[in-house]
Nucleic acid binder design. Sequence first.
DNA 1: CCTGTCACGTA
DNA 2: CGTACGTGACAGGA
Length: 889
Amino acid sequence: MKRLLLLDGHSLAYRAFFALPAENFSTSTGQHTNAVYGFTSMLINVLRDTEPTHLGVAFDVSRQTFRTEEYAEYKAGRATTPNEFKGQVSLVKEVLDAMGVAHIELDGYEADDILATLTTQAVDQGFDEVLLCSGDRDALQLVGDKVTVLYPVKGVSELARMTPAAVEEKYGVPPERYSDLAALVGEKSDNLPGVPGVGPKTAAKWLTTYGDLTGLVASIDQIKGKAGESVRAHLDGVLRNRRLNQLLTDVPLELGPDDLVRADWNRDEVHRVFDGLEFKVLRDRLFATLGTSEPEAEGNVDVDGEVVAEGGAEKALASLTGRTGVHVLGTWARGTGDAAGIGLAGDDGRALYIDLTALTPDDEKPLAAWLADESKPKAMHDAKGPMHALDARGLTLRGLTSDTAIAAYIVRPDQRSYGFDDLLLRYCHIELPQAGDAASGQGMLDLGGTATAETDDVMARAAAVAKLATALDEAVAEVGGTELMADLEMPVVDVLAGMEKAGIAVDLDELQSLESDYDALVVQAQHDAWDAIGGEQVNLGSPKQLQTVLFETLGMPKTKKTKTGYTTDAEALADLYEKEPHPFLEALLRHRDSSKLRSTVAGLIKSVADDGRIHTTYQQTIAATGRLSSTDPNLQNIPIRTESGRRIRRVFVVGEGYECLMSADYSQIEMRVMAHLSGDEGLIHAFNEGEDLHRFVGSRVFGVEPDGVTPEMRAKVKAMSYGLAYGLSAFGLSKQLRISTAEAQRLMDGYFERFGGVRDYLRHVVDDARAVGYTETMMGRRRYLPDLASDNRQRRDMAERMALNAPIQGSAADIMKKAMLGVDEALRDGEYASRVLLQVHDELILEIAEGEREAVEKLVREQMGSAADLDVPLDVNVGTGASWQDAEH
DNA sequence: CCTGTCACGTA
DNA sequence: CGTACGTGACAGGA
């Protein structure tokens, strides 16, 4: 039995480089190893799964090949190889040398040509099987009875087995026609454009009809329709693509397939190389795969699982040691859920599974007590949802010292997604056993056999979350986030869970009547718009159709360009209306307004729960600055600016059994943060005197008495003050205020002259961020901004604006979170029935119980006002009323 | 059905 | 050529 495994080293390492974040894979000396790690991990897996007798890895040498000679644009436009990747290829080769794996490269040829040549030779020489592992789809043309391509589908852990049947199923053509298909469709990454308007489906249909590309060319005049015209116009390109995507099978190699027989590997060399790369777990996995009799002690991830029998909970819980990893089996959404089981794992690898659907009182009592015991430290991943599920079973969870999603967010707040399996691989270099396969090998969590069962999976996850939490504790400490985590983010989880569970009451009848009101306005506006253009029934919601009407039918002047044409946004339409007050524009703007409000209302109606309340979900790990976000529905963007929009706020009402809603919002919190951080004496003075900020700033900038500041002056200054916190330029200010750039520049100069502290602060904050690589909020929340060093000006400018804004927006977010904790705690301490329902960045909405209004107002003012110690006061406005709208005054 | 784009609501 | 979000509609590819 001869089985040859061939890998495209460059493409696989490159994939690994992007699949694994560089910052989590580097040695103590700073050498990045993510590409080496990912490639080696992939190699070990594929060796384990395929057990080849012969093995080789091909590399590209340079970009100069016969393909670039024929077509200079071949692979042009590719981003330059990142510096962090360069150098890792030679490390990959060191790994291969240590493992005794041959690697092959030849100037002027791509790795895939080498693979193609070896594959052809191996088949000719009677090999039983050839396996090609490549991230380049061109390799699919080689697939045959004895040749299978292993194509990485996502990340570094999953390979698709592309047999002839699989190729045909995916692309609709057999492997020998794949290159014809690719020539028609094009290959973006190689800069080979295909036929416009022709996708894989059309191409496959043609190739089936005409046999192959040659047949297609012979009958090319018979192809009907637009696609036919298109392919005739682009035939030269197609034929060129076909010449270029043909892999060479006659590369003059020094080694043949038989020379690739697996050689002995050098244990000492593996130790030396892997030591240098600081690969511990991977080394264990390698030794396990290569069949060593020497399993190394480190990286032991055995889990000893036990499904707790009836009546055994108390004793089992008592046996848990250290911080317990918790994983809940169940479902959750919109402030509620359902939990079926719970996995608990101590730090000694002992894990328990407790079925929650059939708990006897004898088990439930100790479990509930243990879960609620603050002194039993616990770790979970994304705990808020599971907490709802437990809550639905009457179980309260306390003592959470780590939520691994939040920990990862503190370490890198820009990621937006913190999947458990990814974090586990990144921070612990551990993989969970997948359903269906028993765990095996080092670096895999191993429950000793029945890894397919759901209970085992839950226990494995509980054990994994405990390990992950420990690894992340360290990572959090490295970014100085330990306190932020313990004192702010973790306690906030509880508060948010409470808010989500409570929800906010709405007047459903009123919502429905609003919907029909807005619907009538939409219909009327649509009618007026259609009338205004002679009855043509254009879809007013389609930017594309609007462009036709505005710029062709009506011949209006072109607006600002977008990627796909010209903008039809409200600002541009208003501009057009000034130049040309066409009734269509007026009706269109009305239609926009009304349909937006209608869909907002429709969304709210859909999300009213059975209890007559809307339960939003707060996301704590999304906004890179530290803010919360709200989804399903988003209650942080309910209209307020227009009267018709404010009607929507009237449907958010006080619930039964409560007296009123209370709104408490910070006044100008970001400006106050800026005053504090900059230490600017003028701004600090203004806030301390309790003056109208914009009037005060206006009087200084324009050199008049505060009473002499006109509304126009005040509006300009207000726009500028807020703009500064976002990195506004004179150009941007001029556009917003509809003044000349020169006048905008004079305004800004005047501002900075009077408020030099602000200017100095804004300058320093960017410089400092560039020097250390991150910005920091008042409570130590970091945001890393590598693009500050980018040589791309657009990216660098963007990063600079983020650096300007992140400490201001982020500090305000910190303060609000602190205030929420204070308010929540004070409400509990005072045993009030009133509760916090919503947070809208600088505003809290509370539901006030009968007779508690005055006391709660006092407590809210105290807690919000003292959430941070600034050089300026934190002013809080409080209002109450029967609806959100009424409370805001 | 999924994905990208546009548009627009909030702080 | 002003930050941070989420949602809905359309359009184009399947």
